[in-house]
């Protein structure tokens, strides 16, 4: 009996999340982007291009916090199609926000994770879009996703700079 009552209560809390329909928007811009050669685990011993992105983020995601919000998972994702036509989405940065007070973003960041292409080269790849997305993770209930910002114009990949 007690467990039924608890389940109904949890169900009500989970459903209440659908009443909160905040859709905050912010801005994202790429301040500098560079491509350098290097090698790493994947395709070992093969030279490949690494892209380094510096970006600026501003967004107020506090409205996403309600009584059933446990945390936000924020991530910056690069979206582009490479020369071979492969469509790619690569997360280059992420952050977990656990308190409403920390949800005001004003960040000048750079990629946390390596950004490379399947073909090992960004030469002649069409420009990429960068977007800030979020995953709202509840105490109980359904996980939701959204996009808070997107670059207005696609950002081209620069020529590779050779390290001398």
């Amino acid at each position: 009996m007690g467990s039924t009552c608890l389940m109904v209560l949890l169900g009500a809390i989970a459903l209440s999340s659908f009443l909160f329909t905040a859709d905050p928007k912010g801005t994202i811009g790429v301040s500098s982007i560079q491509v350098f050669p290097g090698n790493a685990r994947r395709y070992a011993n093969k030279n490949q291009d690494f892209t380094f992105v510096n970006f600026n983020l501003t967004a107020d995601l506090a409205p996403l916090f309600n009584w059933n919000t446990k945390q936000l998972f924020l991530y910056v994702s690069a979206e582009y199609e490479n020369k071979q036509g492969v469509r790619n989405e690569v997360v280059i940065w992420d952050r977990i926000v656990r308190r409403k007070e920390d949800a005001q973003l004003n960040i000048a960041g750079r990629n946390k994770y390596v950004f490379r292409d399947l073909s090992a080269s960004f030469k002649d790849a069409p420009p990429a879009h960068y977007s800030l997305k979020y995953n709202v993770m509840p105490y109980v209930g359904v996980l939701t996703y959204g996009e808070a910002a997107r670059t207005t114009d696609a950002v081209p990949f620069p020529e590779r700079q050779d390290l001398s």
Partner: peptide, 10 residues
Amino acid sequence: HRVLETHDLV
């Protein structure tokens, strides 16, 4: 685990 990269081949 969470998806970090997706590549849709042609």
